[in-house]
Design a protein around this nucleic acid. Structure first.
Lengths: 165, 165
DNA sequence: TCTGGATGTATCGTCAATACTTACATCTTA
DNA sequence: TAAGATGTAAGTATTGACGATACATCCAGA
């Protein structure tokens, strides 16, 4: 199973919340039109991210805000929040192996550890990528967003204020 | 997209070929009944593994044999052989992000490098796992297979002949 | 040379996962 | 109280992977 599209959508959403939430209301509708999905999907991601303590979502007037600093939010945090199950089954194992064959009976155990190691490699790498790093990449690609961000009393300035690094 | 079940099936097939092919014909039918899939699927895997130079498949009388030593076949080799595309798109990115939004326009580029790094982490880990290591795990779990293997003039003895390690 | 048994491959049907859509209850500010 | 937003539950549609069938192709052995 491919790692879900949810993760990318969640990053997209979090980037927008980080930059925009301090001076404009960020709602499921506005996010959905940028992400290109249904508002309901955004709301489901809201729920998952809120449960993980990554964002706050206002119920009545609407609008989401970041609850932690971008440097303290890793891609792993995001991924686990929106799709907790699938990292444990990153690589599929065929499910109908014969129990009457010595190979079929053991294949699952043979692969269990190696596959778990691969999963851990993904986890480690994801844990090393922070939302702040992604934000800086975005600023580099689109400096006007950084200007916007700078002018709008951002809660968290990225460390590399010059965009140079 | 999850990493395909094909990879696990291919490992299953290769283990059986490694142990059995020296003294009995290993056909798509016999493999399919152990793997629990359709013979056609096995033949497709045959084609992919053959193309990658990992096995030889006899056309007329049937039967597959290993073409390289188990220690020289990595999980990455197997994976790339049977599913070359999906490692490059391990993590899905939402495809309908708005081009009219500065965030939507750049999200794909923001994520490209980090995602590629994750893919490389998977590749590195897979490259470090050899068919020989998997074979030894199988022997440890099912010593009778090792006895079988030992008696049947195996082409390649695993280094840890005692199964102890 | 012919034939049995196996592979190579195209095509179609089925199934599960995923997302979209609609709908409505719930909540909070104005 | 009303407006606008979230929370959540169905039902529907779409996509991709796999299974099933069919048949052409190929090679050893009789």
């Amino acid at each position: 199973m491919r790692i879900s599209v949810k993760c990318s959508s969640a990053v997209h959403i979090l980037l927008m919340i980080t930059v925009l939430s301090s001076y404009q209301k960020v709602t499921s509708d506005s996010l959905a039109s940028s992400v290109g999905c249904n508002p309901v999907e955004v709301r489901k991601l809201f729920g998952a991210l809120k449960k993980a303590g990554i964002i706050d979502v206002e119920r009545g007037p609407g609008g989401a805000t970041l609850k932690k600093e971008p440097k303290d939010i890793s891609l792993l945090d995001i991924y686990v929040a929106v799709d907790p199950a699938s990292l444990n089954e990153l690589i599929g194992i065929h499910t109908h192996a014969s129990d009457y064959c010595l190979f079929g009976k053991n294949i699952r155990n043979v692969l269990a550890n190696p596959y778990a190691e691969i999963g851990n490699a993904v986890r480690d790498k994801m844990a090393s990528i922070t939302l702040e790093a992604l934000l800086e990449r975005l600023f580099k690609l689109e400096p006007s967003i950084y200007e916007h961000y700078k002018k709008s009393m951002p809660k968290w300035q990225p460390e590399t204020a010059g965009l140079g690094t």
